[in-house]
Design a protein around this nucleic acid. Structure first.
Lengths: 322, 322
DNA sequence: TGTGCTTATCGAAACGTTTCAACAGTAATC
DNA sequence: GATTACTGTTGAAACGTTTCGATAAGCACA
């Protein structure tokens, strides 16, 4: 027996509409009754039903964040950034992951969603936007009045990394790529290819990677096999760089001497490993917060906006002069 | 204009109840009409309204997880563990954090909640349980038919740590405590006090800590000031141990020689810092998964259960023989 | 006294489901 | 041929809100 607006109405001797208006702070209802109703509501321990409200108002005050997996090292900070902005504005965050969850976006009448999940087809997202759903994408470029985007400046980051290696005198550079599905990986790789062309004397080799430690290790193994002179290695994310560290720690080769490594993401770990990993930094917290802000704007019927998160170089002893 | 069950009914020339039964796979409705309805539903691009269903059925298929903050190092794995079990069973996970979110538990008619948030008062939780909410607590002991609990074996862990230090010949042991609100911190401290009594020759000192890096650093500073001979330090979590590492890396004292450190949690970082941090390990993934399982059981009207997560010692060069 | 205006309150419909009880229609049983 | 039992379908109420349009009361003014 949930206590509803109806019970309050009965006890207060008014109609349910009055109660509804009162509880929602409408100016129509007189201050006197309004206070009386509030008192009764508290007394009866009234709790509004979010479901009923959603049904009627066609809004849920819920935002969905879609991730592929969140064991990844920086999702914590990302979520933290989102939570802060969202909860300040009365929204809650629902975290969705896995194939099943796609169903969820339309069914829940979620007010909006943030996408960081390559398993979504762009057409799928487009059709949601077409139906009026508000989206923010963090993992692809899209152009639609219901879709905002906030992307990393991957190009600048990758260029920074290559320049750094070149500047330190490296003539042979390996790049450990990311998964084909990842937008960030593709953008970073593209920028690398462009950057490397500017240095005609540099020998440049691409290796496959999957943005996780074990693929970093496998790549490192290949580098080890054909090793003859000091090389630079740009890992398209830090996680793989850790894998490279792991591999070479079991050999007689030294990071920062024989193998010079730079990563991307500046995850927390990177500052603790020895030697400190050079990498490309950006604020995950800000990234999440900005995505949320854009989404809230979009929900308030404002226009789609496109933002970019700046990146910067973090030097570290994992890269030294050749 | 959302397409509803009503539109399907009209198009199929049947009543809305038949459509509802058909779509829910009731055996009452004949296979023939059932298929016809399904076809029409697909054709019209029908999407059920979760809000309407929730309102009527009084269930949401949403589980809430309440956290204080999730930038903490192990929340990723924890959430991952939860997500897996929950989504297999058709539930979604809504992550709640911050004072505001307390309101959320009753309003959303969430089917159940997992609590890992010391800012909840135990009485508050009790009253929710009393109203019929299903809860799993991971951060306190509670006994109620609607509340299951799954706790770490903090006692065993803390004892393991002290024994390890004692075994390595340490005669002076510092303990860096956790925040007073934290159940885990309290349990660990209690066990430490008990364990230390068994070694009458050990000098034992408590220092305050807040489970974060900076409080680890402050504690380290104190240790540094009164330093005269090699000491053992048990940090009640790894995060603070990292703080201790940070502090001493700026001094001329060496971890594993002058200061011997053991932590608790075995966060990912711990295996990468130099020297490897000795610590107490347990599976965060399993912890999360088990909590979810218990909650699902509870929702299916089964009894409350209490489970315990085992811990084990991870040796590391941050603790050596004295 | 009647007209018009404002203000506080109310009734009722609507949101999209689920599900109980009722209902025909057919088949089975005596 | 009457009773019973089952089967597939239906109507209607209910879940707890919001909100539009109507209504009544109060007041000022002519």
């Amino acid at each position: 027996m949930l206590v509803s607006i109806k019970d309050i109405a009965k006890k207060a001797g008014v109609s349910i509409s009055t109660v509804s208006y009162a509880l929602n702070g409408s100016t129509k209802v007189t201050k006197e009754t309004s206070e009386r109703i509030a008192a009764i509501a508290k007394e009866l321990n009234y709790i509004p039903s979010a479901a009923a409200r959603s049904l009627k108002k066609r809004e849920t005050k819920i935002i969905g964040i879609y991730l592929t997996n969140y064991s990844g090292a920086f999702y914590g900070q990302l979520l933290q950034g989102m939570m802060e902005t969202l909860s300040e504005n009365g929204y809650e965050l629902i975290v969705c992951s896995g194939k099943e969850s796609h169903r969820f976006l339309p069914e829940r009448m979620i007010d909006g969603a943030i996408i960081l999940d390559a398993t979504f087809q762009t057409e799928e997202l487009l059709s949601h936007a077409e139906r009026g759903h508000k989206l923010v994408v963090m993992d692809r470029k899209m152009d639609h009045p219901n879709i905002s985007q906030v992307l990393l400046d991957n190009k600048a980051g990758a260029t920074l990394a290559i320049d750094y290696l070149a500047e330190k005198g490296h003539k042979k550079i390996y790049v450990i790529k990311g998964p084909e599905e990842s937008f960030d990986a593709r953008q970073r790789l593209e920028a690398v290819q462009k950057a490397v062309q500017r240095y005609s004397h540099i020998e440049y080799v691409e290796l496959n990677g999957e943005f996780n430690k074990s693929s970093g290790e496998s790549a490192a193994k290949k580098i080890h096999k054909e090793f003859s002179e000091p090389v630079g290695v740009f890992c398209l994310n830090d996680e793989m760089a850790i894998g490279v560290f792991n591999y070479f720690s079991r050999t007689n080769m030294r990071i920062g001497e024989d193998v010079h490594v730079i990563g991307f993401d500046n995850i927390e770990l990177s500052q603790y490993i020895q030697p400190r990993l050079a990498t490309i930094n950006y604020s995950k917290h800000k990234w999440g917060a900005l995505a949320s802000e854009l989404l809230l704007k979009l929900i308030k019927k404002q226009d789609a906006e496109h933002e970019r998160i700046n990146v910067s170089l973090v030097e570290g002893d994992s890269v030294r002069n050749r």
